[in-house]
Amino acid sequence: VDIPWVVKPEERMKFDSIFDSLCPVGGMLTGDKVKPVLLNSKLPVDILGRVWELSDLDRDGMLDKDEFSVAMYLVYRALEGEPVPMSLPPPLVPPSKR
């Protein structure tokens, strides 16, 4: 519980502004709104599929602001050459969902 969320405040601000620009409904973004953004990263679709699996923590097919931050974090790390983990490490789980 005391582990700080690995998504830094300045990154969250960036991800939040992207989130808001995608016109969330009820604070949620559906898969068809998030998909083109992730595809824009040019990462392989199987990698993006895993990013989605890890980000959609409640598996409702939509991402809230915290889940979206996780997705964007993983995409940015992948673009820097870091492998996308097979399961979400505890520091990456948003504090609101522990």
Binding site: G31, D32, V34, K35, G49, W52, E53, S87
Partner: peptide
């Protein structure tokens, strides 16, 4: 290949 839950919720599958 992906964790349980099948994933009709995953837009990339």
């Amino acid at each position: 290949q992906y964790p349980a839950g099948g994933s009709s919720t995953n837009p990339f599958l």
